[in-house]
Write a protein that binds this DNA or RNA. Structure first.
Length: 325
DNA sequence: AACGCGTGGTT
DNA sequence: TAACCAAGCGT
């Protein structure tokens, strides 16, 4: 959960997740849907898919426990170099380094390492430095202290250098370049993704389909939909599902901004839709047991509340700046 | 090896 | 408020 997600954000999810899956065996026994439902709202759902597979791997190969072995840890899905370092040092007391966003920034400033995130030569230097520094009696505490220093003192913006315990030996501070290290990276292009969604109702239920296992929102449930050019939602829907007839009723729009996508979801009430392969009729209660993205949850809130068959007003849900570049 | 992958807090 | 970024990983 902590991969690319702030600790304070994770905390409540962590409590709820552990209440539901108290140990590795419970997690391994659970279905993917249950795990993705428990991951709701955390994003980067590949982490949940990987964690689920890792739990099963631990049951099969390591007696239901995390292996105290760097190579065996690294072989588990979702265990990259950082996570292996965290588990090996914190859980097992091994002198294994870790470099996360915080540690990278701390070491880059402290030792004057140039370059920006993703620079291969820079990453190599940082990991080498971290490996040198982690030697000691309590490597887990050391690694956590390094991360904590980055999170609380050596922050990206407005670092509190006056309070820094290592300010006397900081290369960036001595050269007045704290604000320039690490160098800023160009922001990613945010591409527009336009989807036309079909809301087929049957009583209190709505028809959902499951996305493919990888890629955007992999393994999550959603309204049947088609990608389309802005403005061509209706014709895209009818091209994909001719049986829905000439005039699906527009229900509303949800807009969400992801790191690299500007999502626009246009929702239409349809009649007579032939359920696609693997589709399920799902009530609000059943939907709460499935993995569903935050954007699609916003859609479903509106769709499932719209009880009048002839329809009320169109709704719009926006939560984000629109487009960039 | 560069890129795709979510969401929410902070400023 | 629009931008930035967070206990990274897989391909």
């Amino acid at each position: 959960m902590l991969q690319q997600t702030q600790v304070s954000v994770v905390l409540p999810y962590w409590s709820a997740f552990l209440a539901r899956f108290p140990d590795v065996a419970a997690l391994a026994r659970a279905s993917l849907d249950e795990v993705l439902a428990g991951w709701r709202g955390l994003g980067y759902y590949a982490r949940a898919r990987n964690l689920h597979r890792a739990a099963r791997g631990m049951m099969e190969r390591h007696g239901g426990r995390l292996p105290d072995d760097v190579a065996a840890l690294r072989a588990l899905p979702g265990f990259g170099r950082y996570t292996v370092g965290a588990v090996a040092s914190i859980a097992f007391g091994r002198a294994v380094p870790l470099v996360d966003g915080n540690v990278a920034r701390v070491l880059a400033r402290l030792f004057g390492i140039e370059g920006s995130s993703g620079d291969v030569a820079r990453e190599k230097q940082l990991w080498a430095l971290a490996g040198t520094l982690v030697e000691g009696e309590r490597p887990g505490d050391w690694n956590q202290a390094l991360m904590e220093l980055g999170a609380t003192v050596c922050r990206p913006e407005q670092p509190t250098c006056l309070l820094c315990p290592v300010r006397a030996r900081c290369v960036a501070l001595a050269s007045g370049r704290v604000a320039d290290i690490p160098a800023r990276k160009a922001p990613p292009r945010r591409l527009a993704l336009h989807l036309a969604l079909a809301a087929a109702r049957r009583g209190d239920a709505v028809l959902l389909v499951r996305r493919d296992g990888t890629g955007l929102f992999g393994g999550l449930w959603e309204l049947p939909g088609v990608e389309c050019a802005p403005g061509s939602e209706l014709e895209a829907l009818r091209a994909r599902w001719p049986e829905v007839g000439p005039a699906p009723r527009p229900l509303g729009r949800v807009e969400r901004t992801l790191t690299h996508r500007a999502l626009t979801l246009d929702v239409f009430a349809v009649e007579g839709l032939e359920p696609p392969e693997g589709a399920r009729w799902v009530t609000a209660a059943e939907a709460s047991t499935l993995g569903i993205s935050a954007a699609m949850q916003a859609v479903l809130r509106h769709v499932l509340e719209d009880r009048s068959p002839s329809g009320g007003r169109q709704w719009k849900s926006s939560r984000s700046p629109r487009s960039r570049r």
